[in-house]
Each structure stands twice: as structure tokens, then as C-alpha cells.
């Protein structure tokens, strides 16, 4: 619809919690204007994420805030989640979000996207998947890749903390080789799954690997990936959001860890198909980027 769905019925205004009033008065929606939203809004605007119950200093929480602040069209964005630490933040997001099961996120998102394209042929509706590495790469790998094969027009974001965090720190396919975690008491015996490369092989138009150390970079990648998904095809973002709890870091050490990995396992990887690159140029000209 439009930002109108965030307008409060005047009859109920006096009983509305302040955070709902703030959403109407001080959140940044895209609305009709082309005025860009962005992570600069985080300092003085109402955020789409209310509070959350992740560990203090968890980089997943910071990364989600950057992502929500950078959505090009939040009032028309649906985010599909999976089970994991991120699912503890989803009920606090003031958008239409879905938590269905553990691992089926790309299948649910495919159904939603196709239906919205059918029901609202003249509208832009962005469908974004956001799930952990266990959800994306292990239990949900089939559905992740199949959605790429089918060229579903959705953006898939993997919050890679290299572990099953929410169940207490077990080895995942995304854990680096040699790491000792639960269920790998002698150290992981196989390499970290290169999901960003599998995504390219599977047909995405855009695949980026990065850490959440630089908010502006996260915001740029997110906007590019959503715009490409609208017009060209599936896009994939592989984001390092370390689990400070499981690797034994303090609440203020997540950023340092991400900066370290910027030069190591999460050094820049960016694939943009030719068609997507041309489209991005066009978007730039039109002021969408």
C-alpha cells in the first residue's frame, strides 16, 4: 500500500505506545519521494527495529539495523526469516515479516514473491530472505540453491557467524576447517563451504561476501542487491556477523573481529553479472543509488 498503513487511527492515538507513534512521526519511509533513506538515519530517526534480545554487542543486531535503515522501500518490503538467533529480533521489526520453519526460508519467499507479482502487477514489492549460515547453507541449502536455479526475484542475505549459535555453538558447514566446536570435538574436518561461489554457479545476478564492519558498505550492497532482484534475478549477500559468545569475545570486540576477517576469510568477493552491471549504471543515472 503505502506509508499510510503506519498512520494511527486518531481515535486510538492516546492509547498507542510511544514507539508506534514514533514510527508514524519520525521513521524514514520511502514514500512518494526519491529522497534516500540510509544508515545516517540511525542517529536521529526512529528505527524499524525496536528493541531486541540478542547478546549485548552481537554483530547480528548491528547488521540488521544497517540493513533495515538502508532498505530502499521498507513499506513494501517483506522479510522472510528462519530459526536462529536472528529470529529473536524479527518480532520487533515493524514490517511484514515471516518466520516459518528452520531452512525453508527461500521456498516460502518464492511463494510470497510470485503471489505478490500476481496480485499486484503494477506495484514494486521487495522480498528479502535473512537467515543464518546453518539455515542457508546446511539444512536449507536445497531451497536456497533451487530458488537461485528458478531465478526467483528475491534477495537472500546470509548472516554467517560460522556456527549454529542459537542451539549453543555447534559446527556448521560454514565453520572454518580445524575449528573446535560442539559436534566437532576434534576440530572441523572439511573446509568452509564457499556459498558466495555456489550462488554464482547457481545463477544469481549478484553475489557479495563482506563483513558488517563498515555500515555504509553494507548499506550500498543491500540497495544494489534489492534493485537488481527487482528487475534482473536472484541476488545473494554473504555477511560475516561473528558470534562473539561462541568465540569468546567481549561485547565491544565484534567490530575488531570483523575488521580482522576483512583481510582473511571475508576479504572482498563481488560478482555482478553483465546485465546487472548495466542495470546498476541505469539506476545510478536515475538517482536510485
Amino acid at each position: 500500500m503505502s506509508v499510510d498503513i503506519y498512520k494511527i487511527n486518531p481515535e486510538f492515538r492516546d492509547i498507542m505506545p510511544q514507539e508506534i507513534i514514533d514510527l508514524e512521526e519520525n521513521a524514514t519511509w520511502a514514500g512518494e519521494s526519491v529522497e534516500k533513506r540510509g544508515i545516517n538515519d540511525l542517529t536521529d530517526k526512529k528505527e524499524i527495529l525496536e528493541e531486541h534480545s540478542l547478546c549485548a554487542g552481537c554483530p547480528e543486531a548491528a547488521a540488521l539495523r544497517y540493513i533495515l535503515a538502508a532498505l530502499p522501500l521498507p513499506e513494501e518490503t517483506i522479510i522472510v526469516n528462519s530459526t536462529g538467533c536472528t529470529s529473536l529480533m524479527f518480532p520487533h521489526i515493524a514490517l511484514h515479516t515471516v518466520h516459518s520453519m528452520f531452512g525453508n526460508q527461500n521456498a516460502v519467499a518464492s511463494g510470497i514473491k510470485r503471489t505478490l507479482d500476481w496480485r499486484f502487477p503494477d506495484k514494486t514489492k521487495d522480498v528479502v530472505v535473512l537467515a543464518g549460515d546453518g539455515a542457508t547453507i546446511d539444512i536449507g541449502l536445497d531451497y536456497t540453491l533451487q530458488s537461485f536455479f528458478r531465478q526467483e526475484k528475491i534477495t537472500t542475505i546470509c548472516f554467517d557467524n560460522e556456527v549454529y549459535a542459537n542451539t549453543g555453538g555447534q559446527e556448521s558447514g560454514s565453520t572454518p576447517k580445524g575449528q573446535v566446536f560442539k559436534m566437532a570435538p576434534k576440530g572441523k574436518v572439511f573446509d568452509k563451504v564457499p556459498m558466495w561461489e555456489l550462488a554464482v554457479t547457481s545463477g544469481v545476478a549478484y553475489s557479495v561476501k563482506l563483513t558488517a564492519s563498515a555500515p555504509k558498505k553494507v548499506a550500498k550492497v543491500l540497495r544494489e542487491s534489492i534493485l537488481i532482484a527487482r528487475e534482473i534475478g536472484p541476488t545473494y549477500i554473504h555477511l560475516y556477523t561473528p558470534c562473539i559468545l561462541e568465540i569468546g569475545l567481549a561485547a565491544n570486540e565484534g567490530l575488531w573481529e570483523m575488521k580482522e576477517q576483512d583481510k582473511d576469510r571475508f576479504d572482498d568477493f563481488k560478482y555482478v553479472s553483465d546485465e546487472a552491471a548495466d542495470y546498476l549504471k541505469k539506476c545510478k543515472k536515475e538517482g536510485l543509488l
Binding site: V98, N104, S110, D142, Y143, R150
Partner: peptide
């Protein structure tokens, strides 16, 4: 709209997505 899903687990999740989206 109609398509072949990847397996029945995926199909039923796709059905859920379609139905949830109206």
C-alpha cells in the same frame, strides 16, 4: 501461477508462501 517445486518439503513451503501472501 503454477510451477514445479524442488521436492515436497519445498512445495509445501512454497504453498505456504503463496497462501500467506493472499
Amino acid at each position: 501461477l503454477y510451477f514445479r517445486g524442488e521436492n515436497e518439503f519445498g512445495v509445501m513451503s512454497e504453498v505456504q508462501g503463496c497462501a500467506m501472501a493472499g
